[in-house]
Design a protein around this nucleic acid. Structure first.
Length: 218
DNA sequence: TAGTTACA
DNA sequence: GAGC
């Protein structure tokens, strides 16, 4: 049972570096619940090849979220900044393949949210433990003509959805196991993040939250 | 600035 | 929350 629960509209003001038309993010409550078992098993497989690791940011800080990737491109950050890499710097190998079934599923989820023809070439996998957080940022490293499809599993998290300026007011949206958020166009440049994860126990993931984001990089 | 810390 |  899928539904677009709500649309978040943005102010039409400053238009940064990209030409854009649409302005919202859609939340599909529980849309990935049926995929949980399969996707979590897939994550385990992927992590055997490219383990979860905590990356460093340009400022020298260490991220609290543990990450890995699959697909043609992997998001990497170190003291020099962040970019996409074709190979996992930790192993020297290509990133694990993006499972075919995941790709098809993400295409469908994007379509439900109003984005036809989404063909992701990567999936970033984030692992959250209690206290882990994702600071406010924009998704401006990928192709701007494709949406981002974000899937949540495990412990609840508080999604922060701000505006085009870092200092814009932030809306807080709880994301639960199986929830999917889709955004594209102008909303790629909306500052967003995840508040520090509250400790807890989830029947499927235990003390963790996992987030998958499907993207088109190349 | 996908970061942490200091201070009002 | 603002500033770096």
């Amino acid at each position: 049972m899928t539904q677009r629960e709500f649309m978040l509209d943005l102010p039409l003001s400053p238009v940064p570096k990209h030409e854009v038309l649409d302005t919202g993010a859609a939340v599909l409550r529980g849309h990935a619940a049926m995929q949980a078992t399969d996707m979590l098993a897939g994550i385990k497989q992927i992590a055997r090849l490219s383990p979860f690791r905590r990356m460093t940011t340009a400022g020298g800080g260490m991220m609290s979220v543990a990450m890995t990737c699959c697909g043609a491109a992997g998001w990497c950050s170190d003291a020099r900044g962040h970019r996409y890499e074709t190979h996992d710097p930790m192993t020297g190998q290509s990133w694990p393949a993006l499972p075919t079934a995941w790709r098809a599923w993400a295409t469908d989820a994007a379509r439900l949210a109003g984005y036809d023809g989404f063909a992701p070439d990567t999936c970033l996998i984030n692992g959250y433990r209690p206290g882990a957080r994702m600071g406010l940022h924009q998704d401006d490293d990928e192709r701007t003509d494709a949406p981002v499809v974000s899937v949540s599993f495990g412990l609840p998290a508080m999604f922060q959805w701000g505006g085009l300026q870092r200092t814009d007011p932030v809306r807080r949206i709880p994301l639960l196991h199986g929830d999917v958020v889709v955004w594209g166009g102008l909303s790629r440049l909306v500052f967003h993040g995840i508040a520090a994860l509250r400790a807890g126990q989830h029947p499927v993931t235990g003390p963790c939250r996992y987030n998958l984001t499907f993207r088109r990089v190349w």
